[in-house]
């Protein structure tokens, strides 16, 4: 049994150590907020937070994730909406929405590290791929969050 710290709880999963974290979350822990998009760590639809950093869950094994603090979109906020989720609603960011859970978690990690990111910071950190074209609103929402009073 592999033990994982997911969303503040210890979860057990009977999985191979080499199974990517994404599939432990989706198929064994029924946390489907992280999406499969490419399986090769490029698109970022599977982004989760591991010890506070935005990580491609398809490119991390279950064994590597063990002992670390994993946060998925389902565990982002204890109650109600996280302020990034709130901003995403206010700016009508998602279109199809498939990439957006990963996009939101990347934004959470970015703002945690750099509360007032520049456009260049956003370009460097927000490497998640969106096929629908939400990039302009992602940028606007992040800037609006940075302008909020702490």
């Amino acid at each position: 049994m592999l033990k994982l710290n997911v969303n503040g709880r210890v979860r057990e999963a009977d999985v191979e150590p080499e199974m990517p974290l994404l599939w432990v979350l989706r198929d064994h822990l029924n946390l489907t907020g992280a999406k499969y998009g490419c399986g090769i760590g490029v698109c970022g639809a599977c982004t989760v937070l591991v010890d506070g950093a935005a990580v491609r869950a398809c490119a991390v094994t279950a064994a590597e994730a063990a002992g670390k603090r994993i946060v998925t979109i389902e565990g982002l906020s204890e109650k109600g909406l996280h302020r990034v989720q709130q901003a995403w609603i206010e700016h009508e960011v998602p279109q199809c929405g498939y990439c957006q859970t990963g996009m939101i978690l990347s934004a959470v990690a970015l703002l945690e590290k750099k509360p007032k990111p520049t456009d260049a910071d956003i370009d460097a950190a927000m490497t998640n791929l969106c096929r629908c074209g939400t990039y302009g609103r992602v940028r606007a929402a992040i800037h609006a969050l940075a302008a909020q009073k702490a």
Binding site: N30, T32, G33, A34, K35, Y36, T72, I73, E74, L81, Q85, W88, I89, E92, V93, P94, G97, Y98, Q100, T101, I104
Partner: peptide, 21 residues
């Protein structure tokens, strides 16, 4: 007006075909 499908999408609710449980 705000789109009706967005709140579930930002919460990561299982709304997509691949999310069926």
């Amino acid at each position: 007006l705000h789109r009706l499908d967005i709140p579930d999408k930002v919460l990561g609710k299982p709304v997509f075909g691949v999310d069926v449980a």
